[in-house]
Design a protein around this nucleic acid. Structure first.
Lengths: 204, 204
DNA sequence: ACAGTATGTCATCACTGTTGACATAGCGAT
DNA sequence: ATCGCTATGTCAACAGTGATGACATACTGT
């Protein structure tokens, strides 16, 4: 017991421990969010000392960013027929919670959202919007302002997602699925179709 | 120096101190958000010991909730003519940042969003939605599902607000104001008018 | 067998929200 | 005027946080 006891230090490869830490962090962050999870909890779950977490990832924030990349599984929907995309998107968003990958995407997105007072987190969110909506949609839209409209569709979907899963508005979470689709779908479709509103006054 | 020096303890009335703390907390929370602001910083700004902050408000979270009530100044817009409400709402949202009360509402709302992993904060957000959108709008809407549509309008506005001020999507923040209004306004108007989409298949 | 490096732990720091013991001011009653 | 009581406030401390640097051990190549 005279030795300062650096511990038994059974080694695994550096990449293996790194991945163990990442895995633990992913699980805890998506479950409880950025602030609620401590590096000691992550370290414990990875079977490692807390200092090592910092050594491998620099800081808790960088670990969060490294680990929390969201893949909204909307790619196949976005490739569907344009004339029904609004409804299809809403249907898909409503179904997210019932698929495992979708539910994970939703919780990850919520975690990112709650941590988005940090600029790097905002960057990740913007990249998600870009990847999931702007890239697949912009090229397909007919008419003016395709890119802007794609981003506005993302804003609408984002509004629906946050109302459902962040704010948890009971009027939305408990609304009948078909009703919700029939109302919100066409509102989105409006931006996809690119019809001008007859009441619109100025179109520069 | 023998006395343990509880300090000179210049008194003010309890309500005055309470208000001083609340004021300091409001300012710091709206500026920097819930997590970034410490009790000691609030106490210092109020000219008081940190322990007193807890004594008066119970906890940092309860202080946050007591102090951060958002008043989206949309009442007058919501009373305007229904046939142009979509555009008017978008215009108003885009103008928020340039009025002092609007900018404060936006920053407060952002702070609430970032802290909305706590249920009481979600409650506050839901009350804001109810007060700002559901109450003034539901009664005015013609057609089916008035309440649901009002909440969906809130979701759309929320999506726009978060895209602009939380995610800070540059495609939106740098888009020409009239273009943005002309696209997003009609999309909202769709829910206000309550027109059925010709492609809609099911209307229960 | 030895040196060097890769891997890991420990003690510690400044900071956080929160608590309980303590101190003083101000006021009403005598 | 002086006591006592309560309202108001401060202080020291605690367990927790993220982060840092010194240290220890295992492994690898020679």
């Amino acid at each position: 017991m005279s030795a300062q006891s650096g511990g038994p230090a059974r080694r695994r490869s550096a990449v293996a421990t790194r991945e163990a830490i990442a895995e633990a962090a992913r699980a805890l962050f998506t479950a409880d969010g950025f602030e609620a999870v401590g590096i000691r909890a992550i370290a414990a779950r990875a079977g490692v000392d807390a200092a090592l977490v910092i050594r491998y990832f620099g800081s808790k924030e960088r670990l969060f960013l490294d680990v929390m990349t969201v893949d909204l599984p909307v790619a196949t929907v976005m490739e569907g027929p344009l004339e029904n995309l609004g409804r299809a998107l809403v249907e898909h968003v409503l179904d997210l919670s019932s698929s495992t990958s979708g539910a994970l995407a939703v919780t990850s997105l919520s975690a990112l959202f709650h941590a988005s007072d940090r600029e790097p987190v905002r960057r990740t969110l913007r990249e998600t919007v870009e990847r999931a909506f702007a890239v697949p949609l912009t090229g397909r839209l007919r008419g003016d302002d395709a890119e802007l409209r794609a981003h506005l569709v993302a804003a609408q979907i984002g509004g629906l997602l946050t109302s459902l899963h962040v704010v948890r508005d009971p009027v939305l979470t408990e609304a009948p699925r078909p009703t919700l689709i029939s109302w919100y779908g066409p509102a989105i479709q409006h931006l996809i179709d690119g019809r001008f509103d007859p009441d619109a006054q100025v179109r520069p």
